[in-house]
């Protein structure tokens, strides 16, 4: 049986080298910058490394269409997980503050105003107490 077509040795070295260069870049960012921008950059560089691994090392570049779909779909569902969880975590407790702006809904119950307002015929003696 004759040999199957293979990539040259250079191909493997180039893939590994490019990932290591990206890692070095991330370390350089870490050494020189601070703050959320630096974090975003290092994670972004990690994303690039991942793209190299997935496309060239794992060979998704040449894979069958359905195998690509599996990979993309997995990431998509992970995205749903992240987005919908953050939809809760990032907006907890905001609503009462922003209700008018967001939904133009006000609580249907009229607030007590003025001293002439009475409850069941009793004057609201505890107005001062209520927050």
């Amino acid at each position: 049986m004759e040999s199957v077509k293979t990539q040259s040795l250079k191909y493997y070295f180039a893939v590994a080298a490019s990932i290591l260069v990206l890692v070095a870049a991330a370390l350089a960012v870490h050494a020189t910058m601070k703050g959320p921008v630096a974090s975003a950059l290092t994670l972004g560089l990690a994303g690039l490394q991942a793209v190299v691994v997935v496309l060239f090392s794992m060979g998704l570049r040449k894979e069958k269409g359905f195998n690509r779909l599996i990979f993309v779909a997995s990431l998509m569902f992970l995205g749903f997980f992240i987005i919908l969880t953050l939809a809760d975590v990032l907006t907890r407790g905001d609503v009462a503050k922003d209700e008018e702006f967001n939904f133009s809904i006000k609580s249907p119950v009229k607030p007590l105003t003025g001293s002439n307002h009475t409850i069941d015929g009793h004057p609201p003696r505890h107005e001062g107490r209520a927050p």
Binding site: I19, H30, M33, K34, A38, S39, T42, A46, M58
Partner: peptide, 21 residues
């Protein structure tokens, strides 16, 4: 494929844990 997946995960773990600022 399995080993690259392990590599892939580490690629994200490294900046996520070691390079926070």
């Amino acid at each position: 494929l399995y080993w690259h997946t392990v590599e892939l995960i580490w690629i994200f773990l490294f900046p996520a844990l070691y390079l926070v600022s």
